[in-house]
Design a protein around this nucleic acid. Sequence first.
DNA 1: AATGAGCGA
Length: 333
Amino acid sequence: MSASGPGLPLASLYVGDLHPDVTEAMLYEKFSLAGPILSIRVCRDVATRRSLGYAYINFQQPADAELALDTMNFDIIKGQPIRIMWSQRDPGLRKSGVGNIFIKNLEESIDNKALYDTFSIFGNILSCKVVCDDHGSRGFGFVHFETREAAQQAISTMNGMLLNNRKVFVSQFKSRQEREAELGVRAKEFTNVYVKNLKTDIDEQGLEELFSQFGKTLSVKVMRDDSGQSRGFGFVNFEKHEEAQKAVMDMNGKEVRGQLLYVGRAQKWAERQNELKRRFQQMKQLKQDRLNHYQGVNLYVKNLDDSIDNERLRKEFSPYGVITSAKKRQRRP
DNA sequence: AATGAGCGA
């Protein structure tokens, strides 16, 4: 029988955000308090058997499932709040993001339950979460409503409201891509230009002289250390975007007093931090991936005689399987 | 400042 056949879906819950060690037995112990259970399954990776972090709880009675959802949502198992939803095998609503809203500037004591309670007056909530790290709330979260009307209601009445004395911002959820596209558009209209590789004896006046040919500048600044010495970079803010654009086009890579200038759009401090963080994490991930890739398939062979070269190494090991690389380390001189 | 993950493996 198809699992979407009559009877089943109405009494089936999806439980997500599970700690990887959560088992069927632990879920049974908890959820059977709401009523008789038909079956429970923690979904696992077929090869490794590791928990995928979600489970299904099938009740005999829909009313019991509803009771569980209403009373056990966000309860903590193994230190992690579980997130309960109705099982909905059709991914349409989830993927479309219709009805999904974003809330930021949440006061730290506002948790999942509080967020759920404040927003549930606008309509049926499919899923809701305050984003946390190990220090607690990160001050923002999501509420996914069943309908766009509910989401719209929530946005228009809650945006700008005080919640525990903090003014919250509520808006339509935007995917990372949408958001970056939006930032990109704004960034394209920049007027502030970042200049580096400046000789340290170039001051504001010198910088101004270099860039005034492109248009009227609103401000020119050379960044300095505590002793007042130039740090070799600065900012030129133009009145018009076109002028800033032209300054970048003409001056980037240009030699000024023996140094190649870097000239580009000035980033906001936060934007710069984000980029650095992202690059750092990307690098970390890359290293991890390589490590994982070689884990268990890379052999280290020591005590090789000088006469053995890469070719010979490969030949000796080739009977045991496909070799992707065989390299002998050069003896240090 | 911050815009997710997720459906019977």
